[in-house]
């Protein structure tokens, strides 16, 4: 979900902005020009994935896929997901400007964290274990996103506490769906092109695989 302008307290907005700037800066540090085409094309893929709606029960949700982004992009997920949010705000009117930092942290920080924890597993021995770790990454990232949004709301005032709890509940079905999707995607990538999990995030350039 995208928090809108004006909903959060100044402290939360400023803290979110500062963490986002630090994360984006760290993500760019490892991104030399040779990796920009790969990172850009993957970033566009995740932008499109976020426009896909899948049915859940009687309703439908749009995907976030930040867990998969973390596995594929590592720290580069920070700038890549920031650009996705920027484009969504500017051209589609989702979210806002002053909350761009908070929204970026809520989506990109979980991506980076599950990327660090699950990458080894997702590139692992068999496609089956890879898929399992993919599921953990996909579900875990959404759970963390829900918790971070809830935290941002809860820190903005006691009036937001019930809404904060609701945010976490609302993310639970999405968590299950994204875990399943991410498991399938990682299982497939592990079988077809396992080096995908290291192209942008590792020290080597794309050329090494070409």
């Amino acid at each position: 979900m995208h928090v809108v302008d004006g909903a959060l307290s100044n402290e939360v907005v400023i803290a979110g902005g500062a963490i986002a700037v630090a994360g984006i800066g760290w993500g760019l540090r490892n991104l030399d020009m040779e990796k920009i085409p790969a990172a850009g094309v993957l970033s566009a893929t995740f932008f499109l994935a976020s426009l896909v709606h899948v049915p859940v029960g009687p309703s439908s949700v749009h995907l976030i896929m930040n867990g998969l982004a973390g596995l594929v992009l590592g720290w580069a997920a920070f700038p890549a997901l920031f650009i996705g949010l920027l484009l969504q705000a500017v051209f589609f009117g989702f979210g806002g400007i002053t909350v761009l930092g908070v929204n970026t942290v809520a989506i990109a920080l979980p991506a980076v964290l599950v990327g660090v924890v699950c990458r080894r597993g997702a590139a692992g021995a068999s496609p089956r274990t890879a898929a399992l770790w993919g599921g953990v990454a996909g579900g875990g990232a959404i759970l963390l996103t829900g918790l971070l949004v809830a935290l941002a709301l809860a820190l903005s005032g006691d009036a937001f506490l019930p809404a904060a709890k609701l945010v976490v509940l609302a993310h639970l079905p999405v968590m299950v769906v994204e875990a399943l999707l991410c498991a399938a995607a990682v299982g497939l990538v592990r079988r077809v092109k396992p080096e995908l999990f290291g192209v942008v995030s590792s020290g080597r350039g794309v050329a090494a695989h070409a």
């Binding site: 790969a38 497939l188 070409a210």
Partner: peptide, 25 residues
């Protein structure tokens, strides 16, 4: 559905990466 869409996204990532290799080339 979830498995199929997951495969679709995985396939798009694979194709995207291969495309980026051609772009860099």
């Amino acid at each position: 559905t979830y498995r199929s869409i997951g495969y679709l996204l995985g396939m798009m990532l694979v194709r995207s990466l291969e495309r980026s290799e051609r772009i860099l080339g």
